[in-house]
Design a protein around this nucleic acid. Structure first.
Length: 654
RNA sequence: GCUUCCAUAGCGCAGUUGGUAGCGCAACUGAUUCGUAAUCAGUAGGUCGAGGGUUCGAGUCCCUUUGGAAGCUCCA
């Protein structure tokens, strides 16, 4: 057989050979650093025996793909350590994940001290340097083997595999675990790891099943890489909006007001208002939207028509008791039906469509108490909501427009490169969660697929993520810890117009059902602000800053001039203040820097005499002396264009 | 909702085996009037998240409860 290696060279063998033996044949050194193989592009265990011609890439420890194998092996070492220290714990599953690995155990909860002990035991196991070997058993024998060991979760896993499957196990010095692999050749290969946390997880992610204890860890090829990773996590903590946003006094929460109900301070409010005014003007003046203003609550009847009462009642704040009260009201969890009735207010001609309605809409959702997080998961939020009532023939064009608007908003905020686009589809296996016919679902999904492809937007498809009335495009972003949240959603709805008996009159004088697009341009303001805090670590583009300029008089003598400068800035629509405390200039600059202000204007004798300001910015440090008018012209331009200036390096946290 | 961890002055923290409540920064007052990241001195501030229990005595031990963090599930 012929083995084609990565560099194009070809090795020929007369008999089948394992990847590790091929590596040894190439060089002993290569065999020592080999972690896995890639056979015709597929990850494979080093022990995999190759019998046919193929392309083989031997993955060494420095290859990023090797991390997956190192971490997977680390999770087995973790399992062995736990079994040694807690013999009653049962093992379940332990995969490698994006930035580490975890292993779920059926056990008593682990404390941090437990984790430290487990970590020490793992180091011991690694030092012992057990060779890792692989063997397989027929299904029935595999079940018996795991039953004998009392590993009931493993038994369940094997039972789900096909009857004729050969079940693979890995043995590291006597500790045997059911596993598909791949793994390193020895526990010695795990050189740098750390257990980071423990938490609860459900068996197979199902809250009705057993509660397991999950231990998270991370592993790298080198100690330095691990240290870098831990440093990145520290940096993430510093950027965390829930911490930084409170520290910068953008928002706060109060126990007696309630969970998931943040209060915005004047500073945070100013930022949100800047976003809101931008979006409203943009939609109304440039994208043809009409603004609506509709009630924050309605009778339950409304939600019964929309289907939300059946599909979403648990998530709503409802007043009154359906049994006792004549009328039950609920705070709105969405804006859809309200805007439909705006549409229905008058009879529409095909010439009136599309009707693009938009509203800065406050919504209420009764999240479970454990779901709340900072500004990203709250019980009351305000969204740049909108519904487009369109003719079926306009649907594709309008859907494209919504995507283009969302993309424009993301680009303006400088975050478009940080998002992923998802086509969220229904789940044909779970029909009762959705309304409408399978054909309609498949067709609309194909339309959206075509639109995304045509716009050249890369996307992934997610089954079972659709709204109950239609498929959608979700635009997701990761937070500092790598967890994804939906920022923007654009939904295709060919069904709800029927429920609300919405129609327009076509050219022939007939009533026709319109289609509806549910969409947001910039998502909800709370979540967007959270995202911006983390993206910019609090150092926002000038146009978004609540305080854009601070005038710093050298001493009390120049306060009057400072006030005059400040008045002129404010007259030009710039958010400016004066720091008139009797402090040294160095101290004032320090504080302005810690407040992450974009511009500081130092004024003293010289500036007052010349009617100038001495400009110091977050972006370039000392920018020199400028006439007041020219500074105002420059910053006005920067604000108008929503320029994102590059930050100055270093000088942090002195 | 579930599991673990956490809660001490505005913020960040210390507080030994149970024995008088502490530090840094911020705040306030006074002095200082200063040229690009911290001027000096002084003052005030706490039912130790809340409720109950054990004890001669609880910030510390036990129970209940509220809030926060991470994770699971769910979602914008």
């Amino acid at each position: 057989m012929k083995i084609t290696l990565k560099d194009g060279s070809v090795k020929e063998y007369n008999e089948a050979k394992s990847i590790i033996d091929i590596a040894k044949d190439i060089s002993e050194g290569l065999a020592r650093v080999a972690c896995a193989g890639e056979v015709n592009g597929e990850m494979a265990d080093l022990r995999t025996v190759i019998a046919n011609d193929c392309e083989l890439n031997i993955i060494t420890a420095t290859d990023p793909k090797a991390l997956y194998v190192i971490r997977h092996t680390a999770s087995h070492v973790l399992a062995e350590a736990v079994k040694r220290l807690f013999p009653n714990a049962k093992v379940t599953i332990g995969p490698a994940i994006d930035d580490g690995f975890y292993y779920d155990f059926d056990s008593e909860p682990f404390s941090r001290e437990d984790l430290d002990k487990i970590e020490a035991e793992m180091k011991k196991i690694i030092k012992e340097g057990h060779e890792i070997t692989r063997f397989t058993l027929p299904r029935a024998e595999a079940i018996a083997f795991m039953e004998e060991k009392g590993e009931s979760f493993k038994v369940e896993l094997i039972q789900d595999l096909p009857e004729d499957a050969e079940i693979s196990f890995y043995d590291q010095g006597g500790f045997v675990d059911l596993c598909a692999g791949p793994h390193l050749m020895s526990t010695k290969g795990v050189k740098a790891f750390k257990l980071t946390s423990s938490s609860m997880a459900y068996w197979r992610g199902d809250s009705s099943k057993a509660r397991l204890q999950r231990i998270y860890g991370t592993a790298y090829n080198k100690k330095e890489e691990l240290a870098e990773h831990l440093e990145r996590m520290e940096d993430a903590k510093r950027r965390d909006h829930n911490r930084l946003g409170r520290e910068m006094e953008l928002f706060t929460t109060v126990d007696v007001i309630g969970q998931g109900l943040p209060l915005f301070t004047p500073k945070g409010t100013k930022m949100i208002m800047k976003l809101q005014r931008w979006i409203e003007d943009l939609e109304d003046n440039e994208w043809g939207y009409m603004r609506t203003r509709t009630p924050l609550m309605a009778k339950s009847d409304l939600y019964k028509i929309s289907g939300h009462w059946d599909h979403y009642k648990e998530g709503m704040f409802v007043f009154g008791d359906e049994e006792k009260d004549k009328e039950v009201y609920a705070l709105r969890p969405m804006t859809c039906p309200f805007q439909y009735y705006v549409y229905k207010n008058s009879q529409k001609s095909y010439r009136d469509l599309p009707c693009r309605y938009s509203e800065t809409s406050t919504l209420f959702r009764n999240e479970d108490s454990g779901e709340m997080h900072g500004l990203t998961r709250v019980r009351q939020f305000t969204i740049s909501e909108g519904h487009l009532i369109v003719r079926p023939d306009q649907m594709v064009e309008e859907f494209k427009g919504c995507l283009a608007l969302a993309k424009y908003c993301l680009e303006t905020l400088g975050v478009n490169s940080d998002v992923t686009y998802h086509l969220s589809k229904w789940d044909p296996e779970n029909k009762e969660k959705y309304i409408g016919e399978p054909d309609v679902w498949n067709q609309t999904e194909q339309h959206i697929r075509d639109i995304l492809t045509e716009l050249g937007i890369p996307f992934v498809e997610d089954v079972g993520e659709a709204a109950f009335y239609g498929p959608k495009v979700d635009i997701n972003a990761k937070n500092v810890y790598g967890k994804e949240d939906t920022m923007i959603t654009i939904q295709w709805d060919a069904l709800l117009a029927e429920q609300f008996d919405m129609y327009y009159i076509d050219q022939n004088g007939d009533k026709v059902r319109p289609y509806i697009i549910h969409r947001t341009s910039m998502g909800c303001y709370e979540r967007t602000l959270a995202w911006l805090i983390e993206k910019y670590a609090g150092k926002f583009p000038t146009w978004l800053c609540a305080e854009q300029v601070r005038v710093l008089p050298i001493s009390d003598k120049y306060e009057e001039y400072a006030q005059k400068v400040c008045r002129e800035l404010k007259k030009a629509g710039i958010d400016a203040t004066v720091d008139s405390r009797s402090e040294k200039i160095g101290f004032k600059i320090r504080e302005a820097r810690l407040d992450k202000l974009p511009y500081m204007l130092v004024v003293g004798q010289q500036e007052e005499a010349d009617n100038t300001v001495s400009v110091r910015s977050r972006f370039a440090g000392d920018e020199g002396v400028k006439p007041i008018d020219s500074f105002i012209a420059d910053i006005t331009e920067e604000i108008r264009n929503k320029t994102i200036r590059e930050e100055m390096q270093a000088e942090e946290n002195k």
